[in-house]
């Protein structure tokens, strides 16, 4: 191994040093920054004022930030339930031996490769359009006049509209993870269960679901990681800077630090850092919970 020492260092050096610059150093600095009051983002450390937990307390007392956390929570929970149910349903259908399996799978995954800006624009300007929108056309064709007159993008409906559009784009990815998990389960189990007289529903409930625990864990973790970075969709759905219906912590942070929005009262990079730390804590907490609640160590297959 000694002979290879030089090679190991030379091969690792570029990747590890870029990783240190882009991830390691910024993460540590962000954690430290969250405990300081920092007027300008470019200020040297000597100008930082240590304020302890003041940034976090201030965030907790800012109603706009609380709204943004509440929105994020709703996106995570409601969106998560919708996406996971649809993804699991599609995965079960896809793996049930249908024809054109790869075609269906490819089309369902398709929205994931389209730029979020383009996808959100299609929803905003076409599906939800009050003039020529898909929903309006379909509902008026069906004679549901009341539904066809709904303004999907007004303040009462905007959040649901945003959530639906976002979920549509996310289902494919989670479906693929579920489907590969289901395909890994040996068909012996199902054959044995069929011989014993278990119907499809019971097989799903007592074989598929328990064996998919690990896959659920992966899916929930990935869903949480993507949800925390919720930004583009929110920005596209709000035409005004501080739209309480769709604001998320990332958007709030962006407005605070980089935005020229009217809602900025004071510039404090420490607040932005505190938001980052809070979101990371959420991700770690969900990860920890998933690992403890969805243990599959006792199952061997």
């Amino acid at each position: 191994m000694k002979r290879n020492k030089g090679m190991i260092i030379a091969f690792l050096a570029p990747a590890v040093s870029i990783f240190a610059i882009v991830f390691l150093y910024p993460i540590i600095r962000t954690i430290i920054m969250s405990f300081f009051k920092i007027d300008g983002i470019t200020d040297p450390v000597s100008k930082w004022q240590f304020t302890g937990l003041a940034n976090f307390i201030k965030l907790a007392n800012t109603s706009l930030f609380r709204t943004s956390m509440w929105n994020l929570f709703r996106i995570w929970l409601i969106g998560g339930v919708i996406v996971m149910s649809l993804a699991l349903l599609f995965a079960v259908i896809i793996t049930s031996g249908i024809r054109l399996k790869s075609f269906f799978r490819a089309v369902i995954y398709l929205p994931n490769i389209v730029s979020a800006v383009a996808l959100a624009t299609m929803w905003l300007q076409y599906v939800y359009s009050p003039k020529f929108g898909l929903l309006k056309t379909v509902f008026s064709k069906l004679g549901l006049t009341a539904l066809s007159k709904v303004q999907w993008l007004d303040n009462d409906h905007k959040f649901m509209a945003l959530l639906l559009a976002y979920c549509f784009g996310m289902v494919g990815y989670h479906m693929l993870i579920f489907a590969s998990g289901i395909e890994r389960i040996s068909s012996d189990y199902f054959e044995a269960a069929t011989l014993d007289g278990a119907d499809k529903l019971n097989q799903f409930r007592y074989i598929t679901m328990p064996l998919l625990k690990g896959v659920f864990r992966t899916n929930i973790t990935m869903w949480s990681v993507t949800s925390v970075g919720f930004f583009v969709w929110s920005q596209l759905f709000s035409t005004v800077t501080a739209d309480t219906q769709t604001i998320t912590p990332m958007v709030y942070m962006y407005m605070q630090i980089f935005g020229a929005g009217n809602s900025v009262t004071e510039r404090n990079s420490g607040l932005g850092a505190a938001i980052g730390v809070l979101l990371s804590v959420c991700v770690v907490a969900i990860f920890w919970l998933c690992n403890h609640l969805l243990r599959d160590d006792d199952l061997e297959f």
Binding site: I27, V225, P249, I275, V283
Partner: peptide, 27 residues
């Protein structure tokens, strides 16, 4: 350690890295 670092980095929200990076770059 490097592997664990890389895997964890995939779950780090971007908000955690942009502020210091912007600071360096602007300076």
């Amino acid at each position: 350690l490097i592997q664990t670092g890389f895997v964890s980095a995939m779950g780090v929200p971007v908000v955690m890295i942009v502020l210091p990076l912007f600071g360096i770059v602007a300076n």
